[in-house]
């Protein structure tokens, strides 16, 4: 590019057009002066052509190559671990399903058999009125609610 760069266009340019302008501005004191007058912060665009030392780039490549190799070696282990976890989850899920489908027999028996004649039993019990403190004990198991009320002062 032989013509001078318009700082306003330089500020708006992107991609390869901008890179071409950067190369020109880097070597042209008049254009650098114009760019700095337009907006000094635009001078930092010149950092786009700072060459990165080859040694540093090679270090990145060699570090990545070594790391990618290690990742490759670990890959079968990772797959095996993932397979083991999946198998364990499958077994646990299956066991839970089977357990749910076959509820314990006593529960079924309790549902099938009508409850004992509680009112009759109650009728046979004499309760002497008494004070004292009643204790409520929650013995609920799963969905079966069992609550025991205990009062030591009651005389049946």
């Amino acid at each position: 590019m032989s013509l001078h760069v318009d700082p306003a266009r330089f500020a708006e340019a992107t991609g390869s057009a901008r890179l071409e302008m950067v190369r020109h501005v880097a070597g042209c004191p008049a254009c650098r002066e114009a760019v700095a007058e337009h907006d000094p912060a635009l001078l930092f665009a010149l950092l786009a052509i700072t060459p990165i030392p080859a040694r540093m780039l090679d270090e990145v490549s060699s570090g990545v190559a070594a790391g990618a190799g290690r990742e490759r070696e670990r890959m079968p282990l990772r797959l095996a671990a993932a397979a083991a976890v999946a198998a364990l989850a499958l077994i646990t899920g299956y066991a839970t399903l089977v357990h749910r489908e076959a509820p314990p027999e006593p529960a079924l028996a309790a549902q099938a058999t009508p409850p004992p004649a509680v009112p009759a039993a109650r009728a046979d019990v004499e309760v002497e009125p008494a004070g004292g403190v009643s204790h409520v004990v929650d013995l609920t198991v799963g969905e079966t609610q069992v609550v025991m009320v205990y009062n030591g002062d009651l005389h049946l």
Binding site: A26, G27, L46, T50, A54, R55, M56
Partner: peptide, 9 residues
């Protein structure tokens, strides 16, 4: 950056 980057435009 290290010096071999070329210090000057």
């Amino acid at each position: 950056l290290p010096g071999d980057a070329g210090d000057r435009l």
